[in-house]
């Protein structure tokens, strides 16, 4: 297994999408941290593991009243952030949670990790926060 990179911050996202603005806030905070030159791990658990599942594709379903406009999926947004900050944003997905929810097929830019490595990842971060609950 690849070694865990040392980062300034780890954001452990436990809450799921489509309930509150947790996901949006996570993305906004990640952007703000990376903009400041920080290194960051994002670890998703629970329904948050679905944010980067491959089956989302690059785009949301089309808006029938705005047919030609693209609306990126969360997977595409995550992929874009990772590409914009090479070597500084590391995205991990809990293997157990993603399997439990049938979301084990993830975009290649993220890495699935067993839950027993969570502590190791938090220890590799200057600060670790838990956002939302499963």
């Amino acid at each position: 297994m690849a070694p865990v990179p040392r980062t300034d911050v780890l954001l452990a996202v436990f809450g799921g999408p489509h309930r509150t603005d947790l996901v949006s806030t996570t993305f906004r905070l990640a952007h703000a941290l990376l903009d400041r030159g920080a290194t960051l791990q994002v670890w998703t658990c629970g329904d948050a593991t679905g944010l980067t599942r491959r089956s989302l594709g690059d785009s949301k379903p089309r808006n029938v009243v705005d047919w030609t406009r693209d609306h990126p999926s969360t997977a595409a947004v995550a992929r874009g952030l990772i590409a914009d900050h090479p070597g500084r944003l590391h995205w991990y997905v809990c293997r157990f949670c993603s399997d439990e929810r049938g979301m084990g097929d993830q975009i290649p830019e993220v890495r699935r990790r067993p839950p027993f490595t969570f502590h190791e990842h938090t220890q590799a971060a200057g600060k670790a926060l838990t956002l939302g609950v499963c």
């Binding site: 906004r28 905070l29 703000a32 400041r36 200057g126 600060k127 926060l129 956002l131």
Partner: peptide, 19 residues
């Protein structure tokens, strides 16, 4: 404040953050 303010505080070693 902007989200950048939260980011700055999060990166400050003198600040403990609880979410």
């Amino acid at each position: 404040v902007e989200m950048d303010d939260l980011a700055a505080r999060l990166l400050d070693p003198q600040t403990k953050v609880v979410w």
